[in-house]
Simulated scan of single mutants.
Amino acid sequence: MDFWATVTVLFRRWYVTVPAFLLTVAAALGVYAVAPKTFVSTSALVLTLPVTGGSLPSDPKFPNPRTNPLVSFDQGLSMTSSILIQALNTPRAAAEAGVPPGGEVTLKVTSGGTNPELMPATPFIVITCEAPSAEQARSIVVKVTELAARELRARQQQVKAPPATYVSATVVVPPTEPDEKKGSRMRSAVVTGALAFFVSLFAAFAAESFARHRLARRRTRAASAPLETAASNGARSPAGHEG
C-alpha cells in the first residue's frame, strides 16, 4: 500500500485515528512526566609536581632549581593519574564516597577521554556522577574529589616517597552545580510516542479491514437473497398447481 492510500485510510477511519493520536500524545507526556530525573555533576583535577621537582638533591648545598609546577608535566604524572583512576573506580572507593548499591547512581572517574579503557596519557582526573537528585550527585563528586587527594597521598606514603617530592592533586574545576540530564527522559518519550503511533496505525488498518469484511459480507448476502427467494418460490409452485 502506497503513501496516499495509507493517508486515505487514516482520514477515512478518523474516529479511530484521532483517539489513537490523542492517546499517543498522552502516553508520551506521561512517560516524560514519570521518567526518573537524572542530575550530573563533575569535577576535574590535575596532578602537579612540587616546585623543586620530583627528586631530592644529592648535595643539600646545591638544591634542585625551583620550577613552575604547571610547566613541569611528564609521563610519570600520567602514570600516577592512571593508577589513581584505577583505585577510584573500585567498589571500595564507591562505597566510601557514598554511592548506594543498585545502579541508580553512576560514578565515572576517567582521564578526560570518552573511553575510560584507553587511558590517554594525561595528568588529568575527571570525576562525573549521575544521580536521581542534585544534592546526591554533587555530594558524591565532592567526596570523590577529597578521596582522590587522600588516596594520592596514601599511595606516595606506601612507596615511601620523600614528602618534599609528593605529587599534588590540584582542583582545576570544582564540583559543578548539578544539571538535569533531559536526554534520557526525552528519548523515553520519543520511543513511547513512536510505539504508540504504530499501534494507532495498526488500529486504523484493523478498523479498515473489519469494515471491508463487513461490507463484503453484506454484498454477498444481498446478492444471494434474490437467488434464495427464487429457489423458495420454485419449490412452492408445484404444490400449488396440484392443489
Rank of each mutant, 00 (worst) to 15 (best):
A223T: 10
S168F: 03
P162T: 02
E177N: 11
L152H: 05
L77E: 05
V25A: 14
N233V: 15
L201D: 11
V40R: 11
F39C: 03
A216I: 05
L195C: 04
V18D: 03
V18Y: 03
F202I: 14
D59V: 10
F62M: 07
S41V: 15
E208Q: 12
Q86E: 13
P63W: 00
R12L: 10
Q86P: 01
L77Q: 10
R236G: 15
L84V: 09
L147R: 05
L56V: 08
G103W: 11
F62K: 06
A93C: 09
K181R: 08
P50I: 01
F39N: 03
K37Y: 11
T170P: 00
F3E: 11
W14T: 12
T220G: 08
F197A: 08
Q136V: 04
V51R: 12
A231P: 14
L215W: 10
P19M: 02
G30T: 01
V141W: 00
L56Q: 14
A194F: 15
V99D: 00
T110N: 04
R212C: 04
S81C: 08
S55C: 07
A87M: 12
V25M: 15
V171I: 10
V199K: 05
V126P: 00
P101C: 02
V126T: 10
S224M: 15
R138W: 07
A211E: 12
L23D: 04
G113L: 09
S82M: 08
R212N: 09
E104N: 01
P69A: 14
L77V: 03
E130T: 14
S168E: 06
S41G: 13
S209R: 15
V51Y: 06
S58A: 13
Y166N: 05
F124M: 13
L10Q: 09
V34R: 14
S72N: 08
T80R: 15
L201R: 11
G240A: 14
A35K: 02
G112I: 04
P162N: 11
A164C: 02
Q75I: 10
L152P: 03
I140E: 10
R187M: 09
P132T: 09
L23W: 03
R236C: 15
N233I: 15
V105H: 00
P57W: 01
F210Q: 10
A20E: 02
M186E: 00
F210C: 08
R155Q: 10
V25S: 12
C129S: 11
F205P: 06
F3G: 12
E117I: 06
F202C: 06
I125F: 03
